[in-house]
Write a protein that binds this DNA or RNA. Sequence first.
DNA 1: GTCATGGTTGACAGTGACTGACATGTTCGG
DNA 2: CCGAACATGTCAGTCACTGTCAACCATGAC
Lengths: 199, 199
Amino acid sequence: MKPKQPALRERTRRAVQREIGEAALALFVERGYEATTIDDIAAAVGMSQRSVFRYFATKEEIVVGKLDLAADQMLDTLRTRPPGEPVWVSLRRLFDILDEPGQQHIAEPIHRVVLETPALHAAYLQKLQQIQDAVVDALRQRAAAAGRPYAVDDPTPRALTAAAFGCLVAAQHSWLASGATSPLGDAVDRAMATLTPRA
Amino acid sequence: MKPKQPALRERTRRAVQREIGEAALALFVERGYEATTIDDIAAAVGMSQRSVFRYFATKEEIVVGKLDLAADQMLDTLRTRPPGEPVWVSLRRLFDILDEPGQQHIAEPIHRVVLETPALHAAYLQKLQQIQDAVVDALRQRAAAAGRPYAVDDPTPRALTAAAFGCLVAAQHSWLASGATSPLGDAVDRAMATLTPRA
DNA sequence: GTCATGGTTGACAGTGACTGACATGTTCGG
DNA sequence: CCGAACATGTCAGTCACTGTCAACCATGAC
């Protein structure tokens, strides 16, 4: 019987990871990302610097690692969408999870730190790029399952996905610039409405 | 008469910067970005590590700094396009300079290193983001000059620009994936043809 | 209970990117 | 030829990150 403890270990691991993440984020928001050292974070949770790095590969991952969860949710969303739905609509639906009520007040300072810290912004864009790869994969599979597979060299799924994520980033910018008042989803709607996929 | 030597100084500065850049790039391509240390680069050009950092703020800048020139060219291009031209077409034309013949053979290994090295890829995406900001600005100015300014909260210019650059990145991916045979411009054409701006 | 065992942790040393400070040239203007 | 910029080297220091090792649990076998 092996699979008995692994579950527990995994759970405690997640718990510690979560604790570090929350403490770190509080410090980042309070005094800035660059001004916060890993030692500060370690001290805040009562661990050694070394152990912090056992839970997060890099300092940036403490922040952008939160997107891994979001990525999984996006892929789930994509798989449960009607296979015949227009791709552009499905892509728009992926972003719903970034916009759930109850998270907005928390999400806003995070967004701000990420967009204002060059190192974090770069890491964020890269993570979005990774997510896009997975989304493109899922889109190809879906099309194949629906009997209308894309040709291997057809740039359509990749281009549409890239454009959609580009619109997302554009929407986040204007959302933050206007003080994060109206829901982010509205900004995404407006951004994505400026384009249509060609038949 | 002050502006006599400054011009010379600036020229020699550019020359040294260029020399460092070329030496570094050769090393990056040969043995990889991560495996190349700043000391290696300094030794290759016969300088101290400190001096290398006087010409480039960061290691990544040695590579992605080359895009600053491209960015200027893009903005020039944008300003010389007919003001009435559809935005999507103008945006497509920005990317022509990345595709000039005679640079392709050189550009390919660079592209490869950038896309395959996480740190560089992140820096690259961030630089593209900066360029987008400038492009959006130019688009707004152009529309205003043509008597059809965008409303301040109109996401159109930002969204279209982000989508176009997303298509560019998508095109680079498939271009590299297919061995960089046909010109990059063709890949960009195909990617951007999958979308149309909504009237 | 005891003991092997896998997984977690802290302490320590080391690398590499980067920064600040200072001292030494080299160059250019007068 | 002299003084003021400017470029460069050296050195010391910070911080992110990695490898290693020894101590330390918790669990399961006996």
